[in-house]
Amino acid sequence: MTTLHVLNASPSNAAQLSSCLRLMSAGDGLMLCGEAVQALRDGSAAAQQLLGGERAYQLYALEEDVLARGIDAAALSVTLVDYPAFVALCVDYARVNSWT
């Protein structure tokens, strides 16, 4: 039973990303929205965390947040989603764990 983890805090302010990466299982999803999309900035420490390791999870980001911040997410294989796709992800994964 897989989990979609949803993060929204800036990677520089909060422990969300590092903590989340530690408790994710293979097959889980990681959805970045709000300030959490800053982790997609190429060359950032947070992007290194996302790139590092075997990455047994699927990475998603809320498209409006990526576009709003002018982030070029090409370096990381991230699926940009709109709200209908976000809902569909919540259906596909067995549970959603939102971090605040």
Binding site: T3, R22, L23, N97, S98, T100
Partner: peptide, 18 residues
Amino acid sequence: DDQHIQQLLRQYDYVVTL
């Protein structure tokens, strides 16, 4: 430890994080 926490999460219908 982290590994056991990963296993723990999979046992529940809902995870609520505050």
